[in-house]
Every structure is written in C-alpha cells, then in structure tokens.
Simulated scan of single mutants.
Amino acid sequence: MSADSDLINLYSGRILALAADIPALGKLENADIEVKKRSPLCGSTVTVGVKFSDGQISDFRQDVKACALGQAAASVIGGSVIGCNKTEIQMLQDELTAMLKSDGPAPSAPFDGLESLRPAKDFKNRHASILLVASALTEAFDSQK
C-alpha cells in the first residue's frame, strides 16, 4: 500500500464526523485563562479559554484552526473536559502522547474516543496538531494563579 493511500485511509469517516462537529467552539468571555498553541510544523492553532472552580474546569471554549485530525481531537476533548481537574488533564496529555508516539493504549475515559486517532501514530508530522488542545489545557492548569 502506498503512503498516499495510507494517508487517505487515515481520514476515516469517524475522524471526519468528529471534525465536523466540534463542541464548545468560540471565545470564552471572562475566561480565567486563555492559552494559544501552534504547531510549527503544519501551522495548526488552537486557542482555549478556561474558567476554573474548585480546581476543576467549570467552563471551556476553543477556537480551532487545524487539520481534520486536530479538529477530531478537539471534538473529543471539548465534549468531555468540563469537570476535569489538573491530574485528569495531565493524564490525557500523557496517554495521548503515548498512544501516538509509542503505540500505547488509548486515553482512558472520558477521552477514550481519541482511539479513532490511533492510525495517526504512523504520521509523526500530524502528532503536534492532535496534541494541541491537550497541551493548551495542561498549560492553562500550570498557569493558574
């Protein structure tokens, strides 16, 4: 199978459906913190706005300008992030990184829908885009006052 057909197969119906239905889009007014992340390799960007309450994410919005893979990741994460604490977000980032870079298991619930991105492990140039929202959320927690 050629590299071109591998790439075409990567963009499955599930990934395209996720990319077409990203929750929590937009700018969060009066966010406690806003973090913008950019993938230098492909130029994908995400900006997340987060509000915290009692150490958990109480509100969240995201502006996603990424490939379908980055959009699919933003879709899964955006639909499950409310109520998460710093430990859960760090676990998300660690598990997603391990799945992509060392063929580890899919992230645990509520982010197990990221399993659909497993085929991207063979496309290292796509990893940064897929990790943008998780990285931005980790930074948001790390930057809390």
Rank of each mutant, 00 (worst) to 15 (best):
K27N: 07
Q90E: 14
A20P: 10
S102T: 12
G83W: 01
I82E: 01
A68E: 07
R61D: 01
D59P: 07
K124M: 15
A134Q: 06
S12Y: 09
Q90H: 14
N30W: 01
I33H: 04
G79V: 13
E139M: 03
A140N: 13
P119K: 03
Q144I: 06
K37G: 04
G79I: 04
E115Y: 02
R61H: 08
I130N: 09
P40I: 01
M91L: 13
V133E: 01
A109H: 11
G26C: 09
S143R: 11
V46N: 03
K51Q: 13
T87P: 01
E29G: 00
L16D: 01
T97V: 02
A140I: 03
G78Q: 10
G55M: 08
I77G: 05
L132A: 02
N9F: 05
G113N: 08
S53M: 11
D6A: 15
S116F: 07
A24Y: 00
A98W: 03
P40Q: 15
V64K: 02
K36I: 09
Q56W: 00
P110R: 04
T87K: 13
S116C: 14
A3K: 12
D32T: 01
G43S: 06
G104M: 00
A109T: 12
A109I: 14
T87C: 07
K37C: 06
Q71E: 14
A24W: 00
L18H: 11
L100V: 06
N30M: 07
M91T: 15
L41Y: 07
L114C: 06
K51I: 05
V133G: 06
R126N: 09
V46Y: 08
K51W: 00
A73F: 06
A20F: 08
K27G: 02
R126Y: 06
I82L: 09
L16S: 00
T97N: 11
T87Y: 04
V46E: 03
I8H: 02
D59E: 13
V81Y: 00
A72G: 06
S2D: 14
I8S: 12
R38M: 13
C84A: 14
L92T: 00
D32L: 10
T138I: 05
L92Y: 05
S102F: 13
M99F: 08
A3W: 07
L69M: 13
A3V: 15
A136C: 09
D63W: 04
L92G: 00
I57H: 00
F123E: 03
D59S: 08
F111N: 01
F123Y: 11
Q144V: 09
N9R: 15
D21Y: 02
F141H: 08
T47Y: 10
K124F: 12
S44I: 06
S12P: 00
H127E: 07
S75E: 05
P107T: 05
P23H: 07
S39I: 04
I15N: 02
A120G: 12
P40T: 12
